[in-house]
Design a protein around this nucleic acid. Structure first.
Length: 289
DNA sequence: AACACCCCCTGTCGGC
DNA sequence: TGCCGACAGGGGGTGT
């Protein structure tokens, strides 16, 4: 379930049991996910305290005492479940087949946090202290879409001369870090811009923001904020209905709505599904220009 | 540099 | 009922 709002939701769920707490021991049940786990992963994490738990783009970032940083990515299907302890008794994530429970953090207070990931596109890495910003996965990341660095001037400057579709441009984590397939479609719909335009349409010949660009910024911000507010989106997980599941999927205006009416007030368009960069795009040809 | 593809992996769903 | 292809929230790697 992981674009920025989902990762942010996971972060907020995990912080109460992990931030400031020591990992008594780590149970690692296979040698790799998308990448091999760090060498001696369990031994290197055992007994370390998580000084801060944060998020960068779609990554969870756990700073451990002693300087190392544990970087975690959920891929497409990664999930955390809290169990045991006071909080675990009422906070749950989506669960999932136990055969895909790959990592368990046993916290000092008896709580355990289990990472489940059927497709194994997620990963965990340990980055030595002080190397974090220079790490190849972090170095090229673009600005946070909810941060101060994300504004029309920035986006226009990056879009200047770019011939890629707007959809692909916004999915590129080197430009904006955290958007994914759902929220790009939703944001472009809210801004009334076609995903098939070239990215350069965000900038004038002189590199200044166009009116479209000015509209896109708040559309991205508001859709992400609304999604975080709703606890993210939960797809294909309806079985385990419990308080921790997001419900933003009920507010989708275009995503996964091919053939259905556009939900913009007064628009009579029908949502279309197209393929861009090998992935589904949903948009309304009538009100997105 | 920028872009277009392909790939990783498992599960689910619709059509035949 | 069973089989098979298409598709699913991500992103790294390669070749042009």
């Amino acid at each position: 379930m992981p674009e920025l709002p989902e990762v942010e939701t996971v972060l907020r769920g995990l912080a109460p049991v992990m931030a400031g707490r020591a990992i008594e021991w780590l149970e690692c049940r296979r040698h790799d996910l998308r990448f091999p786990f760090p060498e001696n992963f369990a031994a290197r994490v055992r007994g370390r305290r998580i000084v801060t738990l944060g998020r960068r783009a779609k990554y969870l970032v756990a700073d451990l005492d002693g300087g190392d940083t544990l970087l975690m990515h959920l891929g497409m299907s990664g999930r955390f479940t809290i169990s045991g302890g006071e909080i675990g008794s009422y906070v749950h994530s989506t669960g999932g087949d136990p055969k895909h429970d790959h990592v368990v953090f046993h916290m000092e207070d008896g709580t355990s946090v289990t990472y489940n990931d059927p497709r194994r596109f997620g990963f965990m890495l340990l980055i030595p202290g002080a190397m974090f910003d220079e790490h190849p996965l972090m170095r090229g990341l673009g600005v946070e879409p909810l941060g101060n660095g994300f504004h029309a001037g920035y986006l226009a400057a990056r879009a200047t001369g770019r011939k890629a579709d707007l959809k692909a441009f916004l999915l590129d984590q080197r430009i904006v870090a955290g958007l994914g397939n759902i929220y790009v479609s939703e944001a472009l719909h809210r801004a009334g811009i076609s995903p098939h335009r070239v990215a350069a349409c965000l900038a004038t010949a002189k590199g200044h923001p166009t009116e479209r660009c000015e509209r896109l910024i708040p559309a991205i911000r508001t859709v992400l904020e609304a999604a975080i507010e709703a606890g993210g989106s939960t797809l294909r997980d309806y079985k385990q209905a419990d308080g921790a599941l997001g419900y933003f999927q009920h507010q989708f205006l275009v995503y996964d709505r091919a053939g259905e009416p556009c939900l913009r007030d007064g628009c009579k368009g029908i949502v279309r599904r197209t393929i861009q960069a090998g992935r589904s795009t949903f948009h309304c040809p009538s009100c997105q220009r």
